[in-house]
Design a protein around this nucleic acid. Sequence first.
DNA 1: CTGTTAGCGCATTCAC
DNA 2: GTGAATGCGCTAACAG
Lengths: 350, 350
Amino acid sequence: MAQQLTIRQIAELAGVSVGTVDRVLHNRGRVSPEALAAVQAVLDKQSYKYNLHTSAVAFRRTGKSFHIVISIPSSEKGEYWDLIRDGFEKAFQEYSDISIQSQYVFFDQYSSISCREAFRSIESIPCSAVILGTNFVEETVELCKNLDSRRIPYVFVDGMVSGVNPTANFMVDQDKCGRLLAHLMDGFTPSGSEMAIFLPRRVGAKMSNNSTIRLASFKKYFEEPGRGRLLKEVQFSAENPEGIRSEVSSFLAENPLVRGIAVVTSVVYKVSDALSASGIRGICVGGFDVTEGNARCVREGTLEFLIDQHPQRQGFCAVESLLHYLLYGVPDPSLPSSLPIDIVFRENLA
Amino acid sequence: MAQQLTIRQIAELAGVSVGTVDRVLHNRGRVSPEALAAVQAVLDKQSYKYNLHTSAVAFRRTGKSFHIVISIPSSEKGEYWDLIRDGFEKAFQEYSDISIQSQYVFFDQYSSISCREAFRSIESIPCSAVILGTNFVEETVELCKNLDSRRIPYVFVDGMVSGVNPTANFMVDQDKCGRLLAHLMDGFTPSGSEMAIFLPRRVGAKMSNNSTIRLASFKKYFEEPGRGRLLKEVQFSAENPEGIRSEVSSFLAENPLVRGIAVVTSVVYKVSDALSASGIRGICVGGFDVTEGNARCVREGTLEFLIDQHPQRQGFCAVESLLHYLLYGVPDPSLPSSLPIDIVFRENLA
DNA sequence: CTGTTAGCGCATTCAC
DNA sequence: GTGAATGCGCTAACAG
């Protein structure tokens, strides 16, 4: 294992001072072509890895501080977006040597109007960087254009939006998520039975970006030759428990061959609760995200499995990547943008 | 979020110097009762968290270096123990400010004699700390007694052995692993069918500690009321492919109702390969660890799923915990000894 | 342009 | 027993 290069070692090898190396590494300019070539020659031989921890220590004395604006959906404690928030805070803790002022601008994840309002307000906030939840595509594009013009870097969590240039984005592959849901549901339900996919009905808003992708790849799985499984798409109102209960039980009464219900969002526990409240058993339910409600249902055995998207890690990596960018001008190449997908059953619930 | 306390801040709050705070934090003694009380009072109000990264930087100038002896089974590239090794090396890289000399002493994971030999040789190696793979209980106990008498700290990876006192151990819950295997196999095979559990036959050696636990909890799952599934336990010789092939195909010919084969070890790909070589389809195979061979079978679709034990993370945490102990005298309390269990299907294979 | 230097959190040494 | 001083990788200001 090659020992890590230090900035002083580079300086000695290149025959220059640490100050010069620092200027080269940070592209601060004011370096002669010869010095630059000498340093580059050393860096070509052995790559230098930035050390965010020691940089942070040194950075403290400058007194400079970063203002990071974070705009994500508001959510209850223990829910998906709150877990992403946990990740942010954990990173702020770990890099507390860097003075960071964080400002949250929440919006309603079911209302594009609320998101637009939030994003609009960000356009007039002077800040060092922005972290965005990519729930609404058009609104995100609009804000990013503004940020680009102000030369403010931004990273995405939970998704990606094309046509804009975040310095990084952290998410799980939604296509694979949908397919995995299908695979697991397919395995856990009897081969002759029918399958239902439940979609939360939204008033005056289209489905979220991620849900759309998941739904599409879920359906695609069952359209493949040899699957031979009847799929029923059902809308349900996620608002009040009684509404769900009657919708679920009447659906199952009308479709007695259905043995599995897949939900492409994290409100899946509401379906599980509706089933157990109605005394219905033997239906395999699967969905997304280890939220408090979902975890409870898995523990109770009314929810078979969850697909998890590492929300804390998404949040942590977003901050880490942003700090790397703010300090060095490039996002950390060693951070993976596509995070692994977790599967959670009763036995491996944390 | 409370800002991290620095050692200087503690000193100011307690009205002493940083040197005194350092002596208190590290239990180096030579501190007056009054000074100790003052520092303790500050620490009671707000807890101090050691910063391994900055400590490492400061530590570099002392010139001191640690000698860590690592004794684990030898393994091919990409196999389970090699992935644990990856974790070690990644940690050495991350904490490369600390001068560490690592020395590997490999043994054959199927031979207690080889393990005994390796562990015996460690008894005469002067070193700062030891990391052990706990494949063989008695041999581990014997070595640990020697290390205790020499006051050399040690941590375990992949398991725990009772009766000795490692400063830390990193593993996944084997009981839950076995149960999870049962749960997944149960779900993925038709309800009327029979289930087989395949055990690698070992000449002159009993099953490994972990396999024994997994097997027991696997069987326990199916003994629970209401399962109603016939379980067949089969020994197979993991040595040569042809042997397995004939064993597998003759077993399935004799037991046509079997639709699932569970393997409690990472040699599961050999069973998958035997099945596909024999042209047998429609049997659900599940097993352990994302090794190269296993990953290939999952990709090919001949192996349904794998249960993963985060080998890299086990290795990384082991080193991190050990360094924390060597520097501060206590293992890092924030490191989890029981790691989460991962489930890997085709769709979420890295 | 460049080298020098101060200082960040931290560990350690060494006069007092 | 204690605090001041030194130096680790690193940043940034500053003097030449």
